[in-house]
Design a protein around this nucleic acid. Structure first.
Lengths: 349, 349
DNA sequence: TGTTAGCACTCTAACGAGTCGAGTGCTAAC
DNA sequence: GTTAGCACTCGACTCGTTAGAGTGCTAACA
């Protein structure tokens, strides 16, 4: 059996209606609403076919039909290819979005929180955003300064201007000259190096050159390692997790609890981010419907993600999580605009 | 009517039973379980009195009784005064807690997250912890370092060793000597000052002394101001918000959504922290039952908070939020131990 | 006078029967 | 290939019944 043009139309009509109402849709509804002028009986026949082909489901014999994951997938794919063409069309909405992002915030953290919030408020779904992740962590600058007699603070700047600090306690006071020498040593040796490249031989060589101050070298190296490690669990900001309560199919205790937990612990959101980043070259926006979801306990949800780029190999992810019966059209537009917006904000920086 | 000894016993019995079961408790249940050997009829009479006095409620005529806020308050007060005496008794539990906190974590953030987690896992309620708040923000150390030709990084350390960074772009390259001079100037002028005390006259005086580099002074001052401002909305870590789903009386959509939102947006948690800190001198632990809650949408919950001290005037708050029918006994113990534990961890530092 | 047994009464939760209506599948006619 | 028509299915809803837990009150008892 083949998905001919009429079947497609009917399928789309079913899905659209279901997105609106959230209730199984019957043959009569479709026969009336549509411009394709067919009797309910004909629709019924076609529907039976669509069930057989797996695009729609029947909760029970005498109920209407609801879209299956496969059905949603068809709808979304359709939508995505449409989007390709009419890229410009919704310029107006872009402007709306712009208002909400306000001026490119002074602090990255604040910007991200704001984006997440704007996304969840706009869509009425739960939203997340991951802080841009630096794939290659190259050291840019190291500076030790004496803060108190035997306490120095290490400032470590990595590519992308992420700054890390570490306070180091030392047993014996250190004089200005030695400090200067250490700074020179650290910078000349380590600048431009990726973290992975700092091996034992380099460290021991540095220690040798540092002479008496070898102990501090270790501490600094540790601090460097530490500051990179802390970055490994990437930061994720969320907003509007409570939106899931707006959708009865997700709001029962079991499901809601799982989703809320995911949003609080962020572990699973991290998985989503990694999944997205690993596919990010293919296409801007990714849609995971139901079972396709990268994480187990979102099998009843749809997850839409997009990546934004901050610079050379520095990516972040935005995502929204909602019911499978999601307003994909709106969500896709919003995501596309937002990810473009983010790109351009960061380009300007 | 007076709350005589027998009434007290019955009231406590009712509350304890209700804490266990979560269902209205009838006269027969009490008459059987207790060591006070009274018939159900007598209990009924007393119960009628307790209802009249406002300690318990009757959901409907033919149901058992449940504690009112006033009843819980009586119970908690009772419990608190008991706790005063038998302070040592539960040494064993302390040890259990210690295991969970693992070694005093390397990073404050990680420690706080861990504490929140341990608290929620231990109690099965939702937990929060606020990062220690520095009431008086005194500057301790400022350091400018050149990172690239015309980009310097400012490191600002305030009392309590909180470190802030700011990258400052400058139009013209700056030589080492000037940088050194600026550092001297900044440190000698600003060290030890509270943020509030840095007024215009000081700034203009500094600018004067800085000569050509006056522009940088402004930027640094801005950065200083900025780094303090960012601290104003205090950081709060949460854990186990999903625990509320374990308690049917909180798990219906309306209520759950409100609580989840509070935990996600943190605004209301902030209010709780302020409320707690403002009363923290009175007593270590505070219990807000139902309507007593500092925030509107936790009127169906009980909130238990405690403060911990990191040093001179530097306080933080831990809190748990759960149903009014909460295991206050366990929660109070846990909180007390935990806040002590935190105190001692920070003392050692 | 305080306590208790006993009993009628109240109210909810649970169950089952009956009804309604939306929707289906199938057949026969167009 | 399309459609009208009809019997059938099944969940949602309503309503009356029942069971049981618990009460309040009264009268008897110590």
């Amino acid at each position: 059996m083949t998905l001919d043009d009429r079947k497609k139309k009917i399928l789309l009509a079913i899905i659209k209606t279901y997105l609106d109402t959230g209730e199984p849709v019957g043959s009569r509804t479709i026969s009336k609403i549509e411009g394709l002028d067919l009797s309910s009986a004909t629709i019924r026949n076609e529907m039976a076919d669509l069930v057989e082909m797996g695009y729609i489901l029947q909760p029970h014999t005498s109920a209407g039909r609801i879209p299956s994951d496969k059905g949603y997938r068809f709808y979304v794919d359709q939508l995505m290819s449409e989007k390709e063409q009419q890229l410009e069309e919704r310029e107006r909405e872009t402007d709306e979005m712009k208002d909400m992002l306000v001026e490119k915030a002074d602090k990255m953290e604040r910007l991200l929180k704001q984006v997440a919030r704007s996304l969840s408020v706009n869509t009425n779904y739960a939203a997340m955003i991951s802080a841009p992740r630096y794939n290659i962590n190259r050291l840019k600058f190291i500076q030790l300064s004496r803060m108190e007699a035997n306490r120095i603070v290490a400032v470590i700047v990595v590519e992308g201007n992420m700054i890390k600090n570490q306070i180091i306690d030392i047993e014996e006071p250190i004089d200005d000259e030695t400090l200067l020498k250490l700074n020179m040593l650290l910078n000349t040796t380590l600048n431009g190096m990726a973290i992975e490249d700092i091996n034992l031989s380099i460290i021991s060589k540095m220690k040798q050159q540092a002479g008496e101050q070898a102990g501090i070298i270790s501490e600094v190296i540790d601090a460097v390692a530490e500051s990179i490690k802390a970055d490994e669990d990437l930061e994720i900001y969320t907003s509007g997790a409570n939106n899931i309560f707006k959708y009865p199919e997700l709001a029962d205790n079991e499901r809601a609890s799982e989703i809320i937990t995911a949003f609080e612990e962020k572990k699973q959101l991290t998985d989503i981010v990694y999944e997205t980043l690993s596919h990010s070259d293919e296409k801007g926006i990714q849609v995971y419907i139901g079972e396709e979801s990268p994480v187990e306990n979102m099998k009843d949800c749809s997850v839409v993600t997009a990546t934004y780029e901050l610079g050379e190999g520095i990516h972040g992810t935005i995502g929204i999580i909602g019911p499978k019966r999601m307003d994909y059209d709106k969500v896709l537009s919003t995501m596309k605009k937002l990810s473009n917006e983010l790109d351009s904000i960061f380009k300007k920086t």
